[in-house]
Write a protein that binds this DNA or RNA. Structure first.
Lengths: 196, 196
DNA sequence: TAGATCATGTAATTTGTTACATGATTCG
DNA sequence: CGAATCATGTAACAAATTACATGATCTA
């Protein structure tokens, strides 16, 4: 039982390395060139994070010495790393995550392939939706109560918040629809293969 | 010329203190109870940040000793602080801000009252819109190029990103409309009074 | 062959989180 | 009167940013 709580960046690294073993530079290229996971991508964040994961035995490094004099440390996931990632992916969305680091819920969703069954993913999205809806209710209540005497710009900024969370809900409903149409009837396999 | 670059939290503090002098606890209450500015609100972040601002002479503390034995340090903005805030509020939205800390552009907008003229606010929003649109183009291009062989969940997560930025654009257009209808003809005053 | 960029990191500094500490005041 | 919460912080620690360092390899 690891019971170690990692940072969002570290979980993102585990997810990446599960897909394919990578060196620190590979990871930095990935973060810099793909729209997913707009994490730090700076070496001062990445290399220490990979070392931390190695120290916890969640990843292992293999020295690639095909080019000697600059050996690449290629990291790959260990069983413990995969277990740690799996445990994280199974956590439902919390309110705190929603307002503090809005990206974590989406990150988990995007990496769930091969870890959550279709039913679990549907349940995850439903929980996500509940949290967003709950927060939206709170925001709307706050608006009705206090926003009347806000200056115009602050009021517009509040409206932006409302719209953004409404957009979340709309996407969740869209995703639920897509997933249900993908698996229309009583299929509920863990669906490991389709990941690539 | 201060030329000091502050953190987003510190600018948020300047904006808050401009509205009304506050103690550290007042600020923490504000961050904890209003939907705007979901910043840290933890004392370990707030009190040191206020001290940093005081050390740079951007705020001053007045000891409120009406209750002795627990004097409150009530902070208010100095002229230098207002100038620093003003300079920040005049900065246009950059791509980097957009992907790294999505909240800063909105924060600036919401605090611009009394610092930017209506025309400047319109220009700010137009710049904001350009950046979001540009990033959206890039995202769409990336989708067309690479998303085909992504697994389903990653593809859906990408769709979420697209929708979110589209939502930004829609709000910007809405805000532009509101601001223009508020000031339909050739009025371009700095509009200081309507705040609070 | 000089400069860019690939590829790998380390070090100093700043910042934020978590947890603790302290004493007053209010509520049941 | 004891517990919660108001109100003010501090200290230890973890993490990220910025800047630097090093050498190889490609490119004009």
């Amino acid at each position: 039982m690891p019971e170690t709580v990692l940072t969002t960046l570290e979980y993102a690294l585990l997810g990446l390395l599960e897909g394919a073993p990578m060196s620190g530079y590979d990871v930095s290229r990935f973060f810099a060139t793909t729209p997913l996971a707009h994490f730090s991508s700076s070496p001062g964040a990445l290399y220490p994070a990979l070392k931390r994961l190695e120290a916890r035995a969640l990843v292992t490094a293999m020295l690639d010495t095909t080019l000697e004099a600059r050996p690449r440390r290629v990291y790959s996931l260990t069983e413990a790393g995969r277990a740690s990632l799996d445990a994280w992916l199974h956590q439902p969305v919390t309110r705190d995550e929603l307002v503090r680091d809005g990206r974590a819920p989406l990150l988990r969703f995007s990496m769930a392939e091969g870890h959550l069954s279709t039913d679990e993913i549907l349940a995850y999205l439903e929980g996500f939706r509940r949290e967003v809806s709950g927060y939206l209710d709170e925001l709307r209540e706050y608006c009705d109560r206090d926003a009347g005497n806000y200056p115009l710009l602050a009021r517009l900024a509040l409206a932006h918040g409302l719209r953004t969370y409404e957009c979340h809900v709309a996407w969740i409903d869209y995703a639920l629809g897509e997933l249900r149409s993908w698996r229309p009837a009583g299929d509920s396999g863990t669906d490991r293969e389709s990941a690539r």
